[in-house]
């Protein structure tokens, strides 16, 4: 925790994904921060247990040194490498195998892009890669749309987590189709469901957590905030509040008003 936040995050009860027990339900990306220092401070403020990282070509002139990776390791979080940039199942499988060797983890955030404008995932290729990676011993965290049947297929293929988008990556628009997300939760009660992509504000995170999602994964909403460190903490609080609300069972909505204050014994103005 950053020293600037004196109260601990109310994570609530621990949970388990891919056989690992975590306290935070907030996964955080590591891109687009103003500086490495701000990235580190935001990670600490978020209370996250899991950071996502990517892989890109290493040019010979750099010799193999990697200060970014050294900084990330120093933060002590579990690593969820991604396959961002892949456009086919084959590319994603190869990159996942490379990530497993580098990071020493079987966890992989499977991302196969189908459309470069919306960054919408190619869900057919995602399912193909997820099936192969599961057989190869990976714990697959599959980035997908909010399509129910594809989510069911990915869950059946053995994915450790199914991760529907709330909105396209980096848009910050929040849940564009809350009904679809609610349906996913209802129809896949036993799956680990993490909302990945499109969240912009802590209220968006609270909204999906109230629906019963197991966690959220986001990056840009924190990294591109005016104060990323405070926003990281704000998201942590939003995630924790949403989860606590879900576990507390919100009241049912009613069509008509119902007074909060007892009406029996009202003085003066309703005298009959």
């Amino acid at each position: 925790m950053s020293n600037s936040f004196q109260n601990p995050i109310a994570h609530g009860s621990a949970w388990t994904v891919a056989g690992t027990t975590l306290s935070s339900r907030f996964f955080l990306g590591t891109s687009h921060y103003p500086s490495p220092q701000v990235l580190g401070d935001a990670v600490r403020a978020s209370g996250t247990d899991v950071l996502t990282v990517g892989l890109r070509r290493l040019q010979p002139e750099s010799g193999g040194g990697n200060s970014f990776w050294q900084r990330i390791q120093a933060l002590g979080c579990r690593i969820l490498p991604n396959t961002a940039g892949c456009h086919s199942a084959g590319e994603a499988i190869t990159l996942a195998q490379m990530a497993r060797e580098i990071f020493g983890t079987t966890w992989i955030k499977l991302e196969v892009i189908g459309d470069d404008y919306t960054l919408q995932p190619d869900t057919a290729a995602t399912l193909e890669a997820a099936t192969a990676l599961d057989k190869d011993g990976f714990a697959v965290f599959a980035y997908t749309t909010d399509d129910l049947v594809m989510a069911q297929r990915l869950h059946a293929a053995g994915c450790a987590a199914v991760m529907p988008w709330a909105a396209p990556i980096g848009t910050g628009r929040g849940p564009l189709n809350p009904y679809a997300l609610e349906t996913l939760r209802r129809r896949l009660p036993d799956a680990i469901l993490i909302v990945d992509a499109g969240l912009g504000r802590p209220s968006h995170a609270a909204q999906v957590m109230e629906l019963g999602f197991d966690g959220v994964l986001l990056n840009t909403a924190v990294a591109q905030a005016g104060d990323p460190v405070r926003m990281a903490r704000a998201f942590a609080d939003g995630v924790a509040a949403g989860r606590a609300a879900y576990e507390s069972t919100p009241m049912p909505e009613r069509a008509a008003a119902q007074a909060s204050t007892p009406t029996v014994g009202v003085p003066f103005w309703h005298a009959s």
């Binding site: 990282v53 193999g64 970014f68 961002a84 990071f103």
Partner: peptide, 10 residues
């Protein structure tokens, strides 16, 4: 031949 290394990612 492709050689990859960790970078920032979301």
């Amino acid at each position: 031949i492709d050689i990859v290394t960790p970078i920032t990612g979301g």
